[in-house]
Nucleic acid binder design. Structure first.
Length: 591
RNA sequence: GGAGGUGUAGCGUAGCGGUUUAACGCGCCGGCCUGUCAAGCCGGAGAUCGCGGGUUCAAAUCCCGUCUCCUCCGCCA
């Protein structure tokens, strides 16, 4: 049993004490980071969430507290009373904020003892993620992690403050809601009161925020938890947080303006500057130049289209691909000509991950042209390729011929791999870009039908509305994504705000009238009662956090994340439930 | 669903068929030490080498299976 606080009241936070407090008698409370016992004098570093301060125990200052300090061990919880003093000459520690002072302790209370922790509470330790997650409460004590949680709070608060100042109301929407078969797999919750029926956890508050616009709330936001039962990735968790917002009586530019300001506030918390007007790039341009709708603009290595140069070539792999409607494109790995055969093989392996059949290459080395495909190409074709790709001595050209989506995916990902592997990405550079004019629909070859690229409520761009019926593929949506350094921060659109247009879009999506009624009848009905023009956007809070915290793992920015198998090593969720619980719900297990 | 990687004292790693009684660093325990802050010095405890099976005179080491965690593909309107 530890001692109680009794009459002690914490007066200072460890990390905030400085020489300004010299001579003050203070009380701190926190955890023992480290004890250094020198026999006649004992030092202890005391940590709270604000930082670390050194305490000195010495029989000359306090006999009792010196004797007690002998018992101190790592992670004991203590309250310490003492006087702030400047450290003796030559004993200043410049590595910590409180390094100029120390606390001479005349009273020590051990509030709780601690077992030796399974992972050390230090920034530099490199414990495996499984053990970190099992003992997450210890992992979170590490200053690095504590700091990220603090940053997350500040960013959440900055968001609330900014949106409040701009007339947004924070409104909660249901967690238990209706399953819709579109999009991701739903997490289902059985209804006890209605046996055999299920709620779904929201994949996003999309429909509710639109209903709030119909309700006249005009400006809504929510720091909303969303759930998608899909496989995890380094930047994907099954439950995640969105900064979700929606505005009435606005166009796209209004959304951009509000968002720009929000991003400035958020990134200011991490000392990252956001341009006062974020540039825009049409979707098609992003696909042409970078092969992806979330281009990383921190480095060049753009995709160049060689299709017209090689369409009549004797090299069948190229010309044949073009003739059958495909593309031949390449990227120029500047200075990559001295890549080894095995490096080039690894590039080829990489593009094959994205279904490319192969990777052609041309190296300009020692004033010579090295390439397994050169002998199939005419001199003119080669010259044209070199000039189109702005090739110089020392460059390595990497070329893929395939269907357009495969070429795009293969080269976009190869471009990223090379940039990462060869350190071509500058540190602390932040390239924001709006991707605009997305196609409204995407053709799904497997299902032989159109799917909404964004979601079925995105409005078509006005000029394209006429083409909805005869040429859906060419219709652009008034949708937009905000992209930073190759990461999609968020996306949104101006929504459809009238029933006939919404029904027309549903019909392009091959939703029968019955299906429309069954799935979205309540929304269509709502639209009948006077719906303002509206639009909005949602940001992935966890991805914003990854960037501002400068980490590669989403698990680092969530207090209690899930493993790749969507489990929690801390709580052992998910788990079996009692037969009685299943019975109440009218459920039985298949196996 | 698929591909790859990983697992050895509390933690991080080394060892990759036999002189290994499994090594090293951190941590832990005891002792000494009045100015350390990666304290130091001396001593000590702690590991059925993820689990199961196989090959072999001999397995942490090779093979097969299985599980964990991680990265990626599919999936994520």
């Amino acid at each position: 049993m530890g001692e109680t606080i009794k009459d002690f009241k914490r007066t200072h936070l460890c990390g905030e004490i400085s020489k300004k407090n010299k001579g003050e008698e203070i009380i701190i409370m926190g955890w023992v980071q480290k004890r250094r016992d020198h026999g006649g004098v004992i030092f202890a570093d005391i940590r709270d969430r604000s930082g670390i301060v050194q305490v000195v125990f010495n029989p000359d200052i306090g006999e009792d507290s010196f004797a007690k300090a002998d018992q101190l061990r790592s992670e004991y919880v203590v309250a310490i009373k003492g006087e702030v003093e400047l450290r003796p000459e030559g004993n200043i520690n410049p590595d910590i904020y409180t390094g100029e002072i120390e606390i001479k302790s005349n009273e020590l209370r051990i509030l709780d003892k601690a077992k030796t922790p399974p992972i050390q509470v230090e920034d530099d330790i490199d414990a495996g993620e499984d053990i970190r997650l099992k003992y997450r409460y210890l992992d979170l004590r590490r200053p690095k992690m504590t700091k990220i949680m603090g940053l997350r709070h500040k960013i959440t608060k900055a968001t609330r403050d900014y949106l409040d100042e701009n007339g947004f109301w924070e409104i909660e929407t249901p967690i238990l809601t209706k399953s819709t078969p579109e999009g991701a797999r739903d997490y289902l919750v059985p209804s006890r009161v209605n046996p055999g029926q299920f709620f779904a956890l929201p994949q996003s508050p999309q429909i509710f925020k639109q209903l709030l616009m119909v309700s006249g709330m005009e400006r809504y936001f929510q720091i909303a938890r969303c759930f998608r039962d899909e496989d995890l990735r380094a930047n994907r968790q099954p439950e995640f947080t969105q900064i979700d917002m929606e505005m009435s009586f606005v166009n796209r530019e209004d959304v951009f303006e509000i968002t720009n300001g929000l991003m400035e506030k958020i990134f200011a918390e991490a000392e990252i500057e956001v341009p006062s007007e974020i540039k825009k790039m049409p979707y098609q341009e992003a696909m042409d130049r970078f092969g992806t709708d979330k281009p990383d603009l921190r480095f060049a290595m753009e995709l160049k289209d060689l299709s017209s140069i090689v369409e009549a070539s004797d090299f069948n792999i190229f010309s044949g691909t073009v003739k059958s409607g495909g593309q031949v494109k390449g990227i120029n790995f500047k200075g990559g000509a001295d890549s080894s055969r095995s490096e080039i093989d690894s590039f080829e392996e990489h593009v094959k991950l994205f279904k490319a059949k192969g990777l052609a290459w041309i190296a300009l080395r020692d004033d010579e042209l090295k390439s397994p495909i050169a002998k199939f190409l005419s001199e003119e074709e080669i010259d044209n390729i070199l000039s189109e790709m702005e090739a110089e001595e020392g460059d390595l050209l990497l070329i893929v011929a395939d269907k357009a989506p495969i070429v795009a995916a293969a080269l976009a990902n190869l471009r990223l791999k090379i940039a990462k592997d060869y350190d071509l990405i500058p540190e602390e550079v932040y390239e924001f870009v709006w991707i605009i004019d997305f196609p409204l629909f995407e053709y799904d070859e497997e299902e032989d039908c159109y799917q909404a690229k964004h979601h079925p409520f995105a409005a078509p761009i006005e000029a394209d509305i006429d083409k909805l019926e005869e040429d859906p593929a060419s219709v652009r949506a008034d949708a937009y994504d905000l992209v930073l350094n190759g990461e999609e921060l968020g996306g949104g659109s101006i929504r459809i705000n009238n029933r006939p247009l919404q029904e027309k879009v549903f019909s392009v999506l091959s939703l029968s009238e019955e299906e429309q009624q069954e799935k979205f009848g309540f929304l269509l009905e709502a639209f009948d009662y006077g719906t303002p023009p509206h639009g909005g956007i949602a940001f992935g809070m966890d991805r914003l956090m990854m960037i501002t915290a400068r980490t590669d793992s989403i698990r680092d920015v969530i207090a209690f994340p899930k493993t790749q198998r969507a489990t929690s090593p801390l709580t052992n969720a998910p788990s079996n439930v009692a037969e009685k619980q299943l019975k109440e719900l009218g459920l039985s297990l298949l196996s």
